[in-house]
Simulated assay, not measured.
Amino acid sequence: MMSKPASQILRSLRRLPALLLRSACPIVGGQAVMEGIMMRHGEGYALAARHPSGDIVVERFPWFSLTRHPLLKKPFLRGFPVLLETLVNGIKALNRSAIVQGDEDETPISGPQLMLTMLLALFMAVLLFVVAPHGLSLLMQALGVGGGVEGLTFHLWDGFYKCCIFMGYIWLISFVPDIRRVFQYHGAEHKTIHAFENGGIVDVMAAAGMSRLHPRCGTTFLLFVICISIILHAVLVPALLHIYTPQNVVAKHALTIAFKLLLVIPISALAYELIRYAARLSGGPWASVLRTPGLILQRLTTAEPDKAQIEVALAALREALGEETAGREIRTADYIVRSVERP
């Protein structure tokens, strides 16, 4: 009879080919857009969208990057630049998907338009997730159920309202039909990436059987940002006001909000490293603690896709990878590769 250690070694050897194949799997990320999906790999990304005619149209673009310098690829320095470049490329992909749908009011976005769009998006994010929770926490102080900005209870209320606004925003937009379609494509993106990372043939059937939830999702990243911000604000804002507190009340709260905005840089850096760490964990209680909240939240930001939506995701994956498929066979429906004129 084989000893227990020997049987464990034998089982490990049997798993070795699959483990080697999985470790060699290229990292792919994506984003759902209007009637389509953007898949990014390496220095470029593919945008696949369902044209009103029914055809799948795929276009390839270079990835706009802020992390080409070796220093900005270092852990804890790359998080904020990655956040900005993801926002830039995401806006470009959304704009391009609208063009594929034949929206005559849409044109390729120019540099100044992109900058203005980014500034408006950042302004709305600051208003919703920094200024509004801060104002509501002041209201709790005025009602006598919270302390001042120097104390812990103020920041607990602030964090509570951040979470409520975030969850409420996602829940409300899920009722918009077009956004619901985007959430379905989001699910198709996750299923397709799961099928690719799982090994073997990647087709509609393989992807359909996978989970629509993925630990590397940007939704999880945003949740980590909110959780880390609650902790850092509760610790660092009182510390700042202990060192220097303006005499004017308005100036004190203006300083606090400005400091919170500055903290976005280290918060995004920590959140980025945390999500990468959580994705690398193979299992266990710690992995569950880190992954479960984000996976639960993804039940709101993803929906079960249909076969046609998975076909779009497969086309995006195939074109994003090019020849670097790690030995996997990716079976796609017919699609049209459209060349795009570069400015």
Rank of each mutant, 00 (worst) to 15 (best):
residue 81 P to Q: 14
residue 127 L to W: 13
residue 282 S to I: 08
residue 199 G to W: 05
residue 44 G to F: 09
residue 171 W to F: 14
residue 23 S to D: 04
residue 14 R to H: 03
residue 3 S to K: 05
residue 244 Y to P: 06
residue 307 K to I: 10
residue 264 V to K: 04
residue 4 K to N: 06
residue 226 I to N: 08
residue 324 E to V: 13
residue 162 K to W: 04
residue 43 E to M: 14
residue 225 V to R: 00
residue 317 L to W: 02
residue 316 A to D: 11
residue 210 M to Q: 12
residue 85 E to F: 01
residue 116 L to P: 01
residue 299 R to V: 12
residue 274 L to R: 02
residue 131 V to G: 08
residue 234 A to M: 13
residue 186 H to E: 00
residue 200 G to M: 08
residue 236 L to N: 08
residue 86 T to I: 12
residue 167 M to D: 08
residue 2 M to Q: 11
residue 256 T to S: 06
residue 245 T to G: 01
residue 161 Y to G: 10
residue 55 D to E: 14
residue 70 P to I: 05
residue 44 G to V: 08
residue 299 R to C: 09
residue 64 F to Y: 09
residue 267 I to M: 05
residue 297 L to T: 05
residue 323 E to F: 12
residue 206 A to H: 01
residue 83 L to K: 15
residue 191 K to Q: 15
residue 285 P to I: 01
residue 108 P to N: 05
residue 256 T to N: 10
residue 214 H to R: 00
residue 323 E to S: 05
residue 90 G to I: 14
residue 61 F to E: 00
residue 181 R to V: 10
residue 20 L to H: 02
residue 303 A to V: 04
residue 71 L to I: 15
residue 335 Y to F: 10
residue 38 M to Q: 12
residue 170 I to F: 07
residue 295 L to F: 11
residue 100 V to T: 02
residue 165 I to M: 03
residue 63 W to A: 08
residue 64 F to P: 10
residue 74 K to D: 08
residue 193 I to H: 08
residue 166 F to Y: 15
residue 210 M to H: 01
residue 177 P to M: 11
residue 61 F to Q: 03
residue 193 I to V: 11
residue 86 T to M: 07
residue 326 A to T: 11
residue 207 A to L: 14
residue 251 A to I: 14
residue 230 I to M: 10
residue 11 R to K: 09
residue 155 H to Y: 05
residue 304 E to A: 06
residue 276 R to P: 03
residue 149 V to Q: 03
residue 311 E to N: 06
